[in-house]
Design a protein around this nucleic acid. Structure first.
Length: 719
RNA sequence: AGCGGGAUGGGAUAGCCAGGAGAUUCCGGCGGGCUCAUAACCCGCAGAUCGGUAGUUCAAAUCUACCUCCCGCUACCA
């Protein structure tokens, strides 16, 4: 990589996070692919030699499990999605120069050779670890496929984390009463030899790497914590059949999917070169350090300015993999480090994350089925807010931006200018562009270039929209309709407008390729709008007939209809509380969050409702609890505690001091007078030096206090 | 708990890294203009003490510290 401004002399490669081949694509996924596509096209506009590559991620446990559930071969399972993706991308004008998959020969060979190098360089060692195992199925159970009891708090917990209870991270073997979430069989632990990549030895290198990394700030900052806290070596093997065989242990182990997945970036670039020839695009120039020291070793320091530019666009949930593990592997294996990592935010609907398993999403095919042009969604996804910000989708705002910016500003300027030009001049008037307008176009071009160099897609798109706005002001200000038809003055104004229109088409191409293509055709412009550079913004278009409208309004009734449809879907998603943990695992991809707005839902997080327990208690057991109505007399926060509050509760016979974890969840000043339900015979406990004599009942994370609805007096027994 | 990101006129967003005339753009509201154009387009007005507090500075939305609230990440899930 270099830190020269784009365009540089060396070729660039733009990648996006690999789609994981176990589910359909939705608009969340599309954000990354369209953003990377737009960025790649934008680099091309600057004259940068560049390629956009990607591929399907075919390996890993979720695919193996999914295939098993469907009763098909993992390869067939993944391949079906792979083919679906390949068909979907062109429909959104996502134009990969090469799209492969991680299971093909190129990736398999390259992965094995890179792992061999890691071994040769002494960065791989063996270590015995405990692995959860289903003895009946004779199947290893990666951590999410184990449930059991948390040894710290007694809650039901996932194998790797006590998700419902105390939130602690659990080491393999720690969880009690483990069982398989797939079969329900009791799980046992077996000692297995695994391979580890000594990432911890590369802390200094990675710190330096991060200092020079371009892209979004979150990608630079987030991994620092890991390094500062001390990197752990990385287990790179799994007890599975499905995956790339570990060289030398083919029968036992496959490589962890996160090893071979990013290598697909290289493999896919290589495949591109194999197809077009190294003269057209040389993958080694990008990925292999070009300069060497005297003993033939790659010289990373000296070669910095001669290597290609590697730009990764990813979701912000996989930053660690791209800024720790991946550059560590590249460094040891002797490949070029990425120049930039751009981590996008998530797409949300009404502020909440998308969920595959609960069908809380707008699927790629659904969008197209509604009959909207793909470029409209591209425009929304790539230009709505900052790159690393989460992006909320609503049809209302979609329509707002389409109608306001695309129809009103860009489309309208195009139509009125070209119509005028076609009617009175049969196309571009034969005069030169005025100096003022030429300067304004140059300004827009500069604005675009600057934004691309700052990885600012929104800024780059604004260059075009703002230029179109200028066009509207210009034509309005000069009122060509009041000038003599076909006269010199009118010719000048229209000539200027036509040039602005062409410049807008060039600047908008990365975001709306198909619309730009149509605009170019309407302008009778020479050349391929996808291939031209920014210079084309200044070159005169040709003769042309009357144009068509570029964009159509989205009608209000349509928006209402779509919003209603979406609302219904979201409501269904809320109702569907059946999402098991396996489903959640399938959800966890680059584009999704699993959040719930607890202030809005009185029920809190629907997805996390624990199954009702089967262990029945006797009536006597129940009677053992002395539940009483109490009235809060006073409430004050406990100094030093995050959540604890000290309550004085009137229980009729006496007033007790009770400590409750509700400090931040209730307005303490408003609590006095509130009736609550108290476990009066709870054992005493001292918290932060305050003795708690009883327990106040509350529901859920929100600590929704239980109360009475009648006028029961304090001290009344609850039965 | 630690870390990352965020909190900007009624709604949505930009600016913050490289501090400087009380702040961008879109939607909405109000008034005007124009009629080439897709109820579009152009002009003007109203509206935010830029989450809170305290600092640094001649000057802070922008830097520093602390705080509050949202979202996310925390490695043998992908």
């Amino acid at each position: 990589m270099s830190s020269d401004e784009y365009p540089t002399d060396e070729p660039a490669v733009v990648t996006c996070g690999l789609p994981y081949a176990n589910g359909d694509l939705h608009i969340g996924h599309l954000r990354g692919y369209t953003a990377a596509d737009a960025y790649n096209r934008a680099l091309g506009k600057l004259g940068q030699q560049t390629a956009y590559v990607c591929g399907s991620d075919m390996h890993g446990t979720p695919i193996a499990v999914g295939a098993e559930q469907d009763g098909v071969d993992p390869e067939d399972f993944a391949m079906a999605y792979h083919e679906q993706y390949e068909e979907t991308f062109p429909k959104f004008n996502v134009d990969f120069d090469n799209y492969g998959h991680t299971h093909d020969a190129t990736n398999t060979e390259l992965t094995q050779s890179i792992v061999a190098t890691l071994e040769e360089e002494g960065y791989v060692y063996e270590k015995e670890i405990k692995v959860a195992w289903d003895p009946e199925e004779d199947q290893p159970l990666p951590d999410r496929y184990v449930r059991g009891t948390c040894p710290y708090c007694g809650e039901t917990a996932r194998g790797d984390e006590c998700d419902d209870g105390c939130g602690r991270h659990l080491e393999p073997g720690e969880i009690e009463d483990p069982e398989s979430t797939i079969t329900g069989n009791r799980a046992e632990y077996r000692d297995r030899e695994h391979r580890f990549f000594a990432v911890s030895e590369l802390s200094d290198y990675l710190t330096e790497f991060l200092d020079g990394l371009e892209g979004t700030s979150n990608a630079r900052n987030q991994p620092r914590e890991w390094i500062e806290n001390g990197l752990q070596d990385w287990c790179i093997t799994r007890d599975m059949d499905w995956g790339i065989d570990y060289p030398g242990a083919e029968d036992e182990l496959v490589l962890y999917v996160w090893v071979d997945a990013p290598i697909e970036y290289i493999s896919s670039t290589k495949q591109y070169t194999e197809r077009v020839g190294a003269d057209a695009y040389d993958w080694e120039q990008v990925w292999k350090p070009q300069a060497t020291t005297e003993d033939g070793e790659p010289d990373a320091a000296a070669s910095a300015s001669e290597n290609g530019e590697i730009i990764h666009v990813i979701g912000r949930d996989i930053i660690q993999h791209h800024t720790i593990f991946w550059p560590a592997m590249l460094e040891v294996a002797g490949y070029t480090a990425p120049r930039a990592v751009c981590a996008t935010g998530f797409v949300t609907i009404n502020g909440k994350g998308l969920s595959t398993s609960r069908n809380r999403a707008i699927w790629a095919h659904e969008y197209l089925d509604e009959g909207f042009h793909p470029d409209l969604l591209r425009y929304y996804l790539t230009t709505m807010g900052g790159f690393q910000q989460d992006l909320d989708f609503s049809w209302e705002r979609f329509a707002e931006r389409v109608n306001g910016e695309l129809v009103g500003t860009v489309g309208n300027f195009f139509y009125r200018s070209l119509l005028f030009a076609a009617r009175n001049f049969e196309g571009t008037p034969a005069v030169d562009v005025s100096d003022d307008v030429a300067a304004r176009i140059d300004e827009a071009v500069d604005e675009f270039s600057t934004a691309v160099n700052e990885y600012d897609l929104r800024g780059a798109s604004e260059a075009g929209v703002r230029l179109a706005r200028f066009g509207n002001e210009y034509i309005q200000g000069h009122e060509p309709w009041k000038l003599e038809d076909g006269g010199d003055e009118q010719a000048q104004v229209i000539r200027d407008c036509v040039q602005v229109a062409k410049a807008v088409a060039v600047l908008m191409e990365p975001f709306m390729p198909e619309k730009a293509e149509r605009a170019f055709a309407q302008l009778g412009a020479d050349g391929d709008v996808h291939a031209v550079t920014l210079d084309a913004a200044r070159e005169a278009p040709g003769a042309f007939p009357e144009p068509d409208e570029l964009f159509e309004q989205v009608e209000d009734e349509r928006v209402e209809e779509l919003e209603a449809k979406l609302a219904e879907k979201v409501a269904d998603a809320e109702d569907d509380a059946d999402a098991t943990d396996v489903d959640d695992a399938e959800d966890a991809d680059a584009a999704e969050t699993e959040s719930d707005d607890s202030t809005e839902d009185d029920e809190g997080d629907v997805s996390d409702i624990e199954p009702l327990t089967e262990d029945r208690i006797s009536f006597d057991d129940f009677q053992a609890m002395d539940l009483r109505v109490g009235r809060v007399e006073a409430a004050e926060p406990i100094e030093g505690a995050d959540k604890l509050a000290k309550l004085d509760v009137d229980l009729g016979a006496e007033t007790r001091t009770v400590v409750a974890g509700i400090k931040q969840l209730h307005d303490l000043e408003e609590l006095p007078g509130t009736k609550v339900v108290v476990v009066a015979n709870m054992e005493k406990n001292e918290l932060f030096g305050v003795e708690s004599n009883g327990m106040v009942l509350a529901a859920g994370e929100d600590a929704d206090l239980l109360t009475t609805h009648g006028d029961s007096e304090p001290g009344t027994k609850v039965r």
